[in-house]
Design a protein around this nucleic acid. Sequence first.
RNA 1: ACCUUGGUGGUGGAAUUGGUAGACACGCAGGACUUAAAAUCCUGUGGGCAGUAAUGUCCGUGCGGGUUCAAGUCCCGCCCGAGGUACCA
Length: 1154
Amino acid sequence: MQYSPSAIDQAAKKIWSDKDIYKVENDISKPKHYVLEMFPYPSGAGLHVGHPLGYVASDIYARFKRMKGFNVLHPMGFDSFGLPAEQYAIETGKDPRDTTKENIATYKKQFDKIGLSFDWSREVVTSSPEYYKWTQWLFIEMFNSIYCYENQRAYSVNVLIKHFEEHGNHNNTAFTTNTVNAFSAEEWKNYSEKEKSDILMNYRLIYTSMGEVNWCEALGTVLANDEVINGRSERGNHPVVKKKMRQWSLRMTAYADRLLQGLEEVEFSNSLKDQQRNWIGKSMGATVTFPLSPSKGRGVPRHATANPAAASILYENAKENRKNATEAEKKLWNEIRNRKLEYKFRRQHPIDNYIADFICLEQKLIIEVDGGYHTQTKEYDDARTAVLNELGYRVIRFTNEEVINDIENVLSKLKREFSAPTTLLPKGEGPGLRVFTTRPDTIFGATFMVMAPEHAMVSEIVTDEYKTKVNEYIAYCKSKSDIDRQAEKEVSGQYTGAYAIHPFTGKLLPIYIAEYVLMGYGTGAIMAVPAEDERDRKFAEKFGIEIVEIFDKTGIDKTEIGDKQGILKNSDFINGLNWKDGFDKVIERMEYDEIGERKTQFRLRDANFSRQRYWGEPIPILWKDEIPIPLDPSQLPLLNPDVDSFLPSKDGQAPNARNEKWVHEIEGYTREVDTMPAFAGSSWYFLRYMDPQNDAEFVSKDLVNYWGQVDLYQGGSEHAVGHLLYARYFNHFLYDRGYISHKEPFKRLINQGMIQGVSAIVYRLVVSGAGKKGCHPIEESDYPEIFISHDVILEVEKRNIEKKYTKFWAEIENQKIVKFTFGYNDVLLSSEEDEEFSCFLVSLFKEFKFDYHLFGIDIEPNFDTNIKSNNLKIDFFKNFVRTELKNIDEFSNLLNIRDFKESRDAYKNAYFIYNSSQEFLVGREVEKMSKSKYNVVNPDDVIAKYGADCFRMYEMFLGPIEQSKPWNTAGIEGVSKFLKRFWNLYFDENGNSKLTKNEATVDELKVLHRTIDKLAKDIENFSFNTCVSALMIALNELNAQKTTSEAILIPLLKSICPFAPHTAETIWSQLGNTNSIIVEEFPSVDEKYLVDDTIEYPVSINGKMRAKVSLAADANEAVAKESALSNETVLKWLEGKEVKKFIFVKGRMINVVI
RNA sequence: ACCUUGGUGGUGGAAUUGGUAGACACGCAGGACUUAAAAUCCUGUGGGCAGUAAUGUCCGUGCGGGUUCAAGUCCCGCCCGAGGUACCA
């Protein structure tokens, strides 16, 4: 047989399919090894060259392990629910069930072309009912589970219900982040079904709550973050707003600590662990409440209700009273302390000139217990009540007997009082501004407060004077995504006119709103410490706010100055302490003063588990009277209903609502119409591969015990915090509920870098409005598309000071652009240099006949008019579209305008701004290869030309697996030549075997065993590029030695098998073997060929390599010194100098210091 | 902005983890074979300077400092690219 990649591929594949070589048996007598790829989404564009990088790598690993005697599970399947298929369905009306099937078929064909050793009998597809039946079952399991924070594990919700029935919610250890009113067992029993359901909803691991979504009114649908650009929809440029909707959520916060601890027992890279740790974001700190001040005068902390003149005496008396509490007082205190009645009570609390027995400040409710220690007259009591009422307090009295004999009645009376309306508190005495800080020790450096612009309290505290400005600023922030807000380089913010009061110093701290504070983190407000925080400092500098230094950093090495160093100063009672001691002391004081408390905060949020989409698992819930009831598992799977369109229903509900018959299929109930997110199915699929056809369980216990953890999980680092955390959470949950026997799903994880695409970027000019104050957005359809050649953009960019601006305003006068405003900086153009560009803009406007109305400018359409006061806003740099690579010339980056116009309807009438050579260039950007970015390169063509093995080895040869790099076929010829020469090592030009029984020489054996040794080590380390190099080196050396010995070439053939299985298999069978080489044993290393008798030592002078000396491998330092110092070159360097130091590292090098 | 990660010849990358920088391959240049081309094979190939040459010598791993006998590798401070930032998967 002649060398021919396609013939080799076919021959090998025939042998494998005849033998069904990849079928994996559950043979528990063999040691197992589970090698898994991250679940691919079967995109309509088919597999691209980026995917196989990881697949080939783990295929090599799996084949290697198999040849090493392991029973290797190496399955593949498809994460086939998701947005792209749905989007395609909306656009074309095609059923995603069909398109998904087609896409999967394409993928499988492509996988097989590459020669990946998957056992397709174990294929798992998330969108198949046989699979999602179990995803739905899991939903119900989680819905019916709660998490006990004391025992750190999940239980059935029945455990909690039983607890409620026996004890109410006293000593309830179920995890929740909500506040739940106290109730007794008796009360629980009397609650309605709805009330019970609502209470349990606080604890279920899957629960409903209100959550925010990106709502696009024009499209009538919820958009993914991906689909929103600058506050507008990617499709159609329509406005997008945040809207509250009822959502299902996954209570991941319950597992925050477990997910953190679990990282200790897995072999992930440190960087990946760091990413997860940072994502979970456990931080220790404190919440502090800063009282608010009215805009004029001073407010006081809410609990400081005593008459200031008498305060110190009153506090002393109160303390005394607490010590001498009566029996009734003690009993009542026991029942109401620690928020047992939801609200906080204080006892013996001074108010004005009195001391109340018990007081709830939130409710302005005072409880007096009569007949106790202080026996006043009725007149006195009445007078006192009158005064308290005057101050806005309600007073409720109980007798000693009532409390002692009928406490239940007392408590229920109290609860009734809570529901009575309370008057709103005046400004400055309100609930205060609550902040979370990880650095309570810096509290004396706090000189201002910053709230997120969307903080609910902003509207309450803003003074009339600042209302307009604050609203303008809020509108500005609304148009930006959280990411954009944080990425903003320019500091911005707006003063509200209000002040908070520093709880220790009483100083007034101005309250700002600013985009850099996000509502989603902590409490949505911060105490700003400009001395210690970079962003706070910048803010303070910009707004001229005082910066109080609080750390004395003298004596600390400049290079080491960082956070948490130095000794506290200007900090009252913590002066002279280090940060940690200050930290503890401040918290201690805050807790005593009841203005704050120690708090552990997680950044991790509960995961949203609802999608208002069609193409996902229907949520197996029925609603009856606002109560969600899970389906009985026997009714699963709940299939995706047929719908007349994949768009949302008329009232904005998920598409499933369109099929009303389905929604009301079961009488008296309404079906949940939301579906699950894509991560539902992909968070547990690795368990299903063990037992893919089991219809009775999601996986049998025996099989999960045998296959256990995934030994090697391979996938992209883009899944570091999403998929990997969800999957770990699901696995921990299943472990807790006793379904599987291991907590962590993935033992070892290798991150593959991405093969990136090089997208073609067509820049677009967006003219969006007019007016000095802000711009009035106009719809995309109001004017035609305008595209600009990339080099023109670069030209504009070059003239800008700030490199990354996104906006500029142009003022136009006498047909010339006279002034540009970039962001906040004015840039005056020197007329000469910018003549050309001015002209381009003017001609642009002429091209459009400059219809001002078109641009939303209300002004005479006359160029000679002075229109200085009206500004156009033109966005360049974040406005671009990507185009298919076939529309451009890969080398010159010229756009084929005709093809481009054809590619979308919207571009048919587009305008193009050329460069001075009348050319139109696209920009190129290296980014993730993805269908949506039109930068996909398909592997099929490569395989057709070079064969599967060449493709496999070339992908490996590109570089380290974990590194990302753009796809480039430049070096593929080298690998192709290698394979051909490798074939020619075994066969002459007539296709006859060249192998002989010649005895191998020592040199040949050295080459062989060093290669095998290198391969075995590098495969374990997932370093495949060096494996390919090693094989190339081996071939070069064996060719030079004209090796024909079987003793060398047969082991070599086996060692290349994991990398180039088609070539190895075909050579193997051509040599007359009838079994498959895949089941042969990987050759082992003979250590004796790895060592050399002599070593060539490099000799350095002062660290620079100057000479070489050959020494026996066991030479000692004395021998080395003698040899080195007598070397000619070394002597030349030594001339006139003495040897100060001689360094000898055995087996490595020699360094002579002179 | 934050978290993670990377930056080495014209290009992809190697470097036993602190010890000969540029393995292996592409590309390029020159040569052999050929009427010619392709394919194949051979030689050279980081840059500067000196030399006819062998060779010698200086510089050189994004930039600026530092530690060390010795730094691509460790430390400090920057610059740039990529991934993620919770509904792409």
